[in-house]
Design a protein around this nucleic acid. Structure first.
Lengths: 113, 113
DNA sequence: AAATCGCATCGACATATCGCGATGTGCCGG
DNA sequence: CCGGCACATCGCGATATGTCGATGCGATTT
């Protein structure tokens, strides 16, 4: 067998995707902002509870000062790397950290690097 | 002041360089091989003691199956990221892991990611 | 139903990275 | 002093990434 959960996805490929996603200062910073949404973003956008649903793209966009399309694709790459979880609520897409995967990544790096 | 040792080098830039260098399966694997040179490489090339001086480029090249120029530039990027230390002895360049920096990187990632 | 909002996706262009062969360079043995 | 070895650097074409504006699309508001 290959692994536990998914089909063909090798562990090393996942690590590589994560490292590629993290090898960009802006994406790392956005991941950092998501550590404390309430401290980093004004309330009132998207669904009510920032901590539960996460932060929507337009808030990240304004804070980052990049084009909307850029932020969207950045978040998509972080999601593909399993570092964040995106959830659409109404017309907003909320992103929050995937703490389990982040912790797992650190663990794997600590063990295999 | 900016930091301790070097001039303008921001910490975030260093982390970014390290992550970029690590965002490549072959470079990660080469770093892995250097964890135990004696187990992964035959003796008799370069300077005598693999553990002390490290592994020379031609050994890495043969094991990786890549062009010599590729391996050379890969090791250079790992060295620029402070993940390995290169030392020229005679006509060979030996590379060994920079354990302190690797540990520091993991620590920083664990703290700031 | 139409206008609008929030976001994803689509080209497009500039720059960076991948990996190679060829060429340059320092060091060594004869 | 010369040829060869180990490595670095250069130049190259192919692919990937950064970043944008424009367009598409589902959901919402009017």
């Amino acid at each position: 067998m290959a692994a536990a959960g998914d089909g063909v996805t090798d562990v090393d490929d996942q690590v590589n995707d994560a490292l590629k996603a993290l090898a960009n200062p802006i994406r790392r910073q956005m991941l950092g902002w998501l550590r404390d949404p309430r401290a980093n973003f004004p309330t009132g956008q998207g669904a009510a509870d920032l901590d539960e649903y996460g932060v929507c793209v337009s808030q990240l966009q304004e804070k980052a000062g990049l084009a909307q399309s850029t932020v969207s694709s950045y978040m998509a790459s972080l999601e593909r790397a399993d570092l964040v979880i995106g959830a659409r609520v109404g017309k907003w897409t909320h992103y929050r950290r995937n703490e389990e995967r982040i912790a797992r990544l650190i663990e794997v790096l600590d063990r295999t690097l």
